[in-house]
Structure formats: C-alpha cells, structure tokens
Amino acid sequence: MSDDMLSDQELLRYSRQILLKQIDVDGQLRLKNSRALVVGLGGLGSPVALYLAAAGVGELHLADFDTVDLTNLQRQVMHDTPSIGQPKVDSAMARLAAINPEVALVPHRTALDEDSLAAAVAAVDLVLDCSDNFSTREAVNAACVAAGKPLVSGAAIRLEGQLSVFDPRRPESPCYHCLYGHGSEAELTCSEAGVVGPLVGLVGSLQALEALKLLAGFGEPLIGRLLLVDALGSRFRELRVKRDPACTVCGGVHGE
C-alpha cells in the first residue's frame, strides 16, 4: 500500500481516531508518513511508544542502551517478567510489533554520542525525550535545536511530573535549556528518590498526545507552557515560559 493511501485494514484499525474531525483520513495519513525518535524506553518511554505505535505513527526509532531489570516492572509497562535481562530495545520491539505490525521499528541499542544523536535526530520528524537524567536531556535538546526538530519533553519523580514542548521551528518557542539552564548537580534519579508508576504513565501518555497533535496537525501543543503534575493532590498547574534571547543553545538560532 502506498504512503498516500490507507488500506482497508488501516482504515479499520484506526477508525476510532479517524472519526475525529481533527484527525480524519488526512491526519491519519500524516501519522503514517511520520517518523519519531523515543529516547529512553522506561517509565515514560513505555506509554509513549505503546500509544504512538497503536496510533499508527509510521516509523518509530527506539533508543535505549539499558536492559530490563526486575525493579523496572513496577512502572515500565512495556516490559514484562520474561523480558528481564533483555535489552529494553528488544523487549520494546517485540511488544510494539505485537500491537501494530504496520509500524516500522528502528533500534538504537547503544548510548548515543554527539554524532550518532545528531544523525538519529536528523532522521526523524519529532523527538520525545523520555530519559531520566539531565545530561541526556541537554544533549537531546541541543541536537533538536541544531536540526530544527520539535522536542516533547517529560519528567517524573516521586509524586511530581512535568511536561512541555520545545519547537525550534517557531521563533517564540523556548528550548529546554532556556527553562532549566545547567540543571542541578544534586539531581536525583528514580532509583534514589522513588516514583509511583501511574504518574510516569500519565506524563508519558500526555507526551504521546502532544506528539500526535504535532505530527497529525491538530490542537494546541504545549509550546511556551510547562505543565506541572501534582500526583499527591491530583492537581495540574500550568506556567508560561519564554525564550531566553541569551540562551547559549538556541539564542542564535533566530538571529539574536
């Protein structure tokens, strides 16, 4: 089946979202012809990859150098007990292929250095940062700014989560570095501070939704807005964020 048509099987598979006037057949075709890179296949990357595959994003690039551990299974719902010890990329590919064999899967099983990250970002239309450390987030952001690719960034720890979209194609959009600067030397990980499973599922699901909006071309993405999730009180809060003209990452992109 050509990339400018949907097969009868695809029309049936995606019928419930095609019914939405905001998506329709044209939006589904845009998803079919889209490529997304998921960086990190853990608590956030699990719902991201599962929902993007189920929704029919045509090509998913999957990046993770880690293996599945027993402690992952409390929140990383893409993996299961038999996959313990397997590379997360392999576990993810098996699960995603079972959900939707129509989606092409491109693995990145080793850590991405500056050159390989730049190539991986250049090969897709959109990037989802589902990593769990600041240095990776900074590197992914810099690669997205350099390549002019939108970035859907999520994070969750303990009982708090946050989400935003950074799109260097838009002059008004901040980048990750505008918001977080050089980060904190005392940054904690989930293995140190803990995290509740449904929270990463919630943030990852919202990341997938933002990606679908950008790829299919509907709705209002979280550009210039930071969504804060308080799982303890079941509250959402939104902050407006602006570009930093002096940002060392994106400050010169639009001629400042």
Rank of each mutant, 00 (worst) to 15 (best):
T71G: 02
L96P: 00
R169W: 12
V89T: 04
I84L: 08
L151F: 01
V124D: 07
F134L: 06
L128E: 02
V145K: 10
A94P: 00
G148N: 12
T136Q: 07
N133S: 09
G58C: 14
V140S: 08
L105F: 03
A122S: 15
N133D: 07
P47W: 12
Y51T: 05
T136R: 02
A143W: 03
S83E: 09
A55L: 05
A94C: 00
S131I: 03
A53K: 04
R75H: 04
G85I: 04
R95K: 14
V127H: 14
R137K: 15
S83M: 15
V121T: 07
F134C: 01
C144M: 10
L70Q: 03
V103R: 06
P47N: 08
G154T: 06
D66W: 08
D69N: 13
L70Y: 08
D66R: 00
D64S: 10
S173Y: 05
Y176D: 03
D115T: 10
L96I: 09
A54D: 00
P171W: 14
S173H: 00
M78T: 01
V106Q: 02
K88S: 04
Q74S: 08
A146Y: 02
P107L: 00
D90H: 14
D132C: 11
R95A: 15
A120C: 06
A111W: 00
K149P: 04
V89M: 13
H61M: 02
E138R: 15
L159H: 07
V152Q: 10
A94Y: 00
D113E: 12
V57Q: 08
N100W: 00
V127M: 03
R137F: 10
I157D: 12
R169V: 05
A53Q: 08
E172D: 14
A63H: 09
K149Y: 13
A122P: 05
V124T: 12
E172Y: 09
M93G: 02
V68P: 05
D66A: 01
L62F: 09
A49G: 05
L96D: 02
T71W: 04
D113W: 05
D64C: 07
L112N: 06
R75M: 07
L96G: 08
P171S: 15
C144I: 09
I84H: 10
S91P: 06
E160R: 15
A142H: 04
P101R: 08
P171Y: 14
I99E: 07
A119G: 03
I84S: 09
A156S: 11
P174Q: 15
A142F: 13
A122V: 11
C175S: 06
E138K: 15
L50C: 02
E138N: 13
V165G: 01
G161C: 00
L105W: 01
G161Y: 01
P168W: 15
L52G: 04
A49T: 01
P87S: 15
